[in-house]
Design a protein around this nucleic acid. Sequence first.
DNA 1: TATGAATGAGTCTTCATTCAT
DNA 2: GATGAATGAAGACTCATTCAT
Lengths: 203, 203, 203, 203
Amino acid sequence: MPGPSTTPSSTGSEQPASRSRRDPQARRRAIIQAAADLLIEEGGGNITHRRVAERAEVPLGATTYYFKTLDELREAGLELLADEVEEVLGDVRREAAEAQGDPEVLARLLHDYLADRESVRADTALYCAAIQRPELRPLAMRWFDGMVELLSDWTDPATARLVATFADGVSLHATVHDEPLSLADLTRVFTALMRPHPAEEEK
Amino acid sequence: MPGPSTTPSSTGSEQPASRSRRDPQARRRAIIQAAADLLIEEGGGNITHRRVAERAEVPLGATTYYFKTLDELREAGLELLADEVEEVLGDVRREAAEAQGDPEVLARLLHDYLADRESVRADTALYCAAIQRPELRPLAMRWFDGMVELLSDWTDPATARLVATFADGVSLHATVHDEPLSLADLTRVFTALMRPHPAEEEK
Amino acid sequence: MPGPSTTPSSTGSEQPASRSRRDPQARRRAIIQAAADLLIEEGGGNITHRRVAERAEVPLGATTYYFKTLDELREAGLELLADEVEEVLGDVRREAAEAQGDPEVLARLLHDYLADRESVRADTALYCAAIQRPELRPLAMRWFDGMVELLSDWTDPATARLVATFADGVSLHATVHDEPLSLADLTRVFTALMRPHPAEEEK
Amino acid sequence: MPGPSTTPSSTGSEQPASRSRRDPQARRRAIIQAAADLLIEEGGGNITHRRVAERAEVPLGATTYYFKTLDELREAGLELLADEVEEVLGDVRREAAEAQGDPEVLARLLHDYLADRESVRADTALYCAAIQRPELRPLAMRWFDGMVELLSDWTDPATARLVATFADGVSLHATVHDEPLSLADLTRVFTALMRPHPAEEEK
DNA sequence: TATGAATGAGTCTTCATTCAT
DNA sequence: GATGAATGAAGACTCATTCAT
């Protein structure tokens, strides 16, 4: 899995002067990026105009100029996180295609993804938001649905959903515990779940 | 699984007048309970002295009298959630013991647990808190560790960890999606994971 | 001694509307002035955002907008007091220069200064602050050091320090007792202290 | 000068159990003592029932039981400080009597007194209180008047007042600066001021 | 267009004081 | 008599939002 190599996410700060004034688009992006970073670091409850402005290195007024309310800004940040997660998922998908859905390869891809703390944090941050505010659930589902879709090329939908659910647990586990599951563990689960099973009559 | 039938958790409000004045113990409990309820409903970021006081039907001053800081109050609420979760887990354990660790029975117990929205919310609320504030991770781990311990009676530790991780995903899934996984799905995963597997050489 | 004749200090309140809104500089000044007034009248321990706001006739929020913390505001007020005191001292110095350090003239200058209750209060307010908070001592020393420097033109440093110490006592005495020392008393002390003395070997 | 050898002031903490319960007098004293200590350390503005109670190691209720209001408690503390100062002054007086008012001896006594930081702090704390609250001036005057009376045995009242004023300045100076005036300096001033002077016609 | 000034609402917290026990 | 519980008022501080410029 590609990791954040392609996503310029949550790292930027000293973009060229192009970000500042006279480039509204870039400015807007910088603000959203700052909001997303803060969402990851501190959770949605602690994000304020002032903190975002400072982080994005734009004047306070800019944050209210581009976003009518703080909620709107928060949502834009979450959306960016979801986009990032989805982008990562897209990369994974391409690699998975080549692997023909080999459980071992899928396990390795998930393992690589887990190594990218930034992406994992984005993922769990989305889940936190979704847990606390139902209207944000669609954002969190994008990851789950993407995962299911990815897997659907190689297995039946029910199994795909189960594997995706397991992947969620793995993400959560990686965030809360110090170290993520081992590649061997992941491989074992993927293999066990994707192996043809006797009773195909679920749901 | 017992569900909250035994735990009068997170529902109370209209205790007899005995809760009020001059019964510090009960008062403290009521405040913590209110905090826990709010944690479940709105997440740790949105809890305030005022909201807790209103919820617990005590004057504002009471919340600061019993807890020097809001953090302390929040933590007490989380601890209560963790206790509740653990209590549920204890019940599960007792039932699991009788079942001799039969995967089907375990799946049913998890399924029953998922039907108790309150407990699931408590579980995910703990995870949210742990994600956003590392110092709270031990609380979230109590659930995971308890699950692992429970399973350890019937399978090897590595498998127990994997199943517990899956259970985390299931919890998360149940909170964010409208309906939890089916009993059949759970049974399938439990069976697949707990079945003796060829390579015992993980990690 | 000139007294505050030149300093519009600690009296203002009814500036033209120019002070209000959209004149940050003036607003800031008004707040500091109000703080200084309160410091003189009630001492540093009793100054609050609310009182300052009311005194300066600005909304409460203004006091926290211009000063991140109350301490900062307090300090700004004290600094203003110190500036005022120093300004008075500058006037005294100019007059003293013409008098060639004649003890009688110096005594008269101090006597005039004592007649300006406002300045004396500023002086003692600074001392109070310095007594209770060591980090503010430099502010109080500005008066003492200024006095020493002033006198150093006409007498040796040791004597200057003694005379300045006496002047401190006089200030204190004037604040706590109803009436200050008489001109004759001051003259006597100044003369006695500045008269060449037998043993020049102190310290 | 005796220093604090005779005054058990502001040091106590672990009196025998006699202080606690069943000895109201001792309890009251302990509370007042604690208040006095806090007055010296933090100034009158920062004294609270809770802090006093903690310092005196008595329950919170005791502080309101023995003193109807906080002001009353504060005043009791100041009174204790004044008593202590006066006690020191009494010791000084006895020694001064033997010395027949010799300026050199008086200077030494003041110098010794300055070495007792505790007493000096008490003195200046009283002055701070008196500056900020006129109704407390009598307390601060007790020290000044005592000094004048002491000196009156050896010199005329006017001179006594001048010397006492100087002594005030010395106290202030000692509190705000790191080191007090030298014995030689003090001697010089005392000698100069108490020497018979030509014009006896002041005030 | 863009932004800093502005402010009132709301946050946590401390505390004097009262009072039931 | 003594004390911990109790609470409303007030304090410092933060901030979303508005608005003049």
